[in-house]
């Protein structure tokens, strides 16, 4: 079943066209990796999916529902964007954990705030809290952080922070989990633990979009790869195909330059 359909997305900042006619789709339980040099529009694409940016043109559909259509103003109401965002989770390059909360509180906060909007919240306050807490603890355990739940972000390593951030995004059970260069801000010896966690999520059939520079990881974990260049999708398809037999000269050049690094 197709979870995500992106059609003809355009986005420009002032005179700079950052995304030009980007279209792709994603099946449930699949992993899509987006590669490309910096400035090719990968991050902007993720930000559009999470409604941190508004595309100038194009359509975004999730599970058949049109979340965004540049030609239909009714899909762009500020008040609806919040609930639409919940279809997506986003893990940032720089974690963006909330420093004043513990790992556990970071994972629980958004869900607690959402629970307050439930009509039965007042009556079942305690049960709801316990439920959210149990779920958050389970997520952190999955991330291998059972001993770090009550630590504050500044007491954690970069890799641990990123794993908390992943748990935080998962807590809201998004349809699609997005990663924006999740290991770029980490020391090389810490990237492995984060990639391992993402791999485990892939094995559990979590639908994911990963913007990354880790070519071998992308090749190993993804079902589909997109190579972006100058705001366009230059090549997309099966990872083996894109990495081993790139059709385009620029793709070949890019993959070659990464490998030689």
């Amino acid at each position: 079943m197709t979870v995500l359909e992106v059609e003809n997305i355009y986005k420009s900042f002032g005179r700079i066209d950052v995304l030009k006619d980007v279209s792709f789709s994603l099946e449930e339980g699949q992993v899509l990796s987006i590669i490309g040099s910096s400035g090719s529009g990968k991050t902007t694409l993720l930000r559009c999916l999470n409604f941190l940016e508004h595309p100038d043109k194009g359509v975004i559909r999730v599970n058949g529902e049109t979340l965004f259509d540049a030609d239909d103003a009714s899909t762009q109401k500020e008040s609806h964007i919040r609930s639409k965002r919940l279809h997506f989770g986003l893990v940032f390059q720089s974690f963006n954990l909330f420093p004043q909360y513990t790992a556990l509180q970071n994972v629980m906060l958004a869900k607690e705030l959402l629970a307050k909007e439930r009509p039965d919240y007042k009556a079942k306050k305690k049960e709801i809290y316990e439920e959210i807490k149990a779920q958050a603890e389970e997520l952190l355990r999955q991330m291998g952080l059972e001993n770090r739940m009550n630590n504050y972000p500044h007491q954690l390593s970069g890799g641990q922070c990123q794993r908390v951030a992943i748990a935080r995004a998962l807590a809201l059970e998004p349809d699609i989990l997005c990663f924006d260069e999740p290991t770029s801000a980490l020391d090389p010896e810490l990237t492995g633990e984060v990639l391992r966690v993402i791999k485990e999520l892939a094995d559990k059939k979590t639908t994911m979009i990963i913007v990354t520079h880790e070519m071998s990881f992308a090749k190993e974990v993804s079902n589909q790869v997109i190579f972006m260049d100058d705001g366009r999708i230059l090549e997309q398809g099966d990872p083996i195909e894109v990495f081993e037999h790139p059709k385009e000269e620029r793709t070949r050049h890019f993959i070659g330059s990464i490998k030689s690094n």
Partner: peptide, 27 residues
């Protein structure tokens, strides 16, 4: 307060006022 704090709140479905009071205010 870094922009990332606001963006993290937004993608977690928090409202602007929740982000202000629960995330940014103490920082």
């Amino acid at each position: 307060v870094p922009v990332g704090q606001e963006e993290a709140g937004l993608v977690l479905g928090m409202t602007k006022s929740q982000i202000f009071f629960k995330v940014k205010l103490l920082q």
